[in-house]
């Protein structure tokens, strides 16, 4: 299964996602930001990093690149799209998922392991978990505080994917740190499943995010 990894200048988790996608049994390949035609790929991942240095605002510049058109096409064709960290910020900036990820409450970068609750299993990426299962994955971001004015709609449509368990390190609305679109195919999560894909690194809870793409 061919999975595309979108690369922007400043992406820095691209190789890590590549490694995790291979572990999950897919065939990953990189896609440069100026590529428009993504029809070769069955699923897409936008990895973390600091696209365009996060200058202006995290994700703001990446959101107006040609590859975004390709991503929108893929969404229309019902292909799964996962945005991790900076990738999540980009998906929110483009409007493919509801809400925004903004500056952490303490205004600092936070790197730590967190416990997370899987709130819905209807997305391809969470399809291999149990609903309300608690998993361990690390976060690493300065702009990860989730905010939406329309929280009821998220609940109604089952669009909350992950929430922090027993703490709310960045001050997100209802401790939410992963959301999806109405169809459940576009997923934006701040925690890094690729950093939790091998037990030697602290946990392999995240690997199912990628295995789920194949399984779906």
């Amino acid at each position: 299964m061919k999975v595309g990894i979108i690369r922007f200048p400043g992406s820095n988790c691209d190789r890590d996602v590549f490694h995790a996608l291979e572990l999950a049994g897919t065939e990953p390949d990189y896609i440069w930001w100026n590529q428009r035609d993504l029809s070769d790929f069955e699923a897409l991942v936008i990895p973390g990093g600091f696209s365009y240095g996060d200058y202006l605002r995290a994700g703001a510049i990446a959101a107006i690149t040609p590859v975004i058109e390709g991503i929108k096409e893929s969404v229309k064709e019902n292909k799964p799209v996962l945005g991790i960290c900076n990738g999540a910020q980009i998906l929110a900036e483009v409007g493919l998922v509801p809400g925004v990820f903004t500056v952490n409450q303490n205004a600092k970068f936070i790197c730590k392991w967190t416990e997370l609750k899987v709130k819905t299993v209807r997305t391809p990426f969470t399809s291999m978990y149990k609903k309300n299962e608690v998993i361990k994955m690390p976060i690493a971001h300065a702009e990860g505080r989730y905010f939406t004015e329309n929280i009821e709609k998220l609940h109604e449509n089952d669009q909350i994917v992950l929430s922090f368990e027993s703490e709310n390190p960045n001050g997100s609305t209802e401790a939410i740190t992963g959301v999806c679109d109405e169809e459940g195919l576009v997923c934006a999560v701040m925690p890094h499943p690729e950093r939790a894909s091998e037990s030697i690194l602290g946990s392999d809870d995240g690997l199912k995010f990628f295995k789920g793409i194949v399984n779906y």
Binding site: H19, F109, I110, C111, A140, H192, S197, E198, G202
Partner: peptide, 15 residues
Amino acid sequence: YSQYDHEVQVRTVVK
């Protein structure tokens, strides 16, 4: 150290 990304590159076994 919580302000530093110490996980990127998926090599950090002991943090």
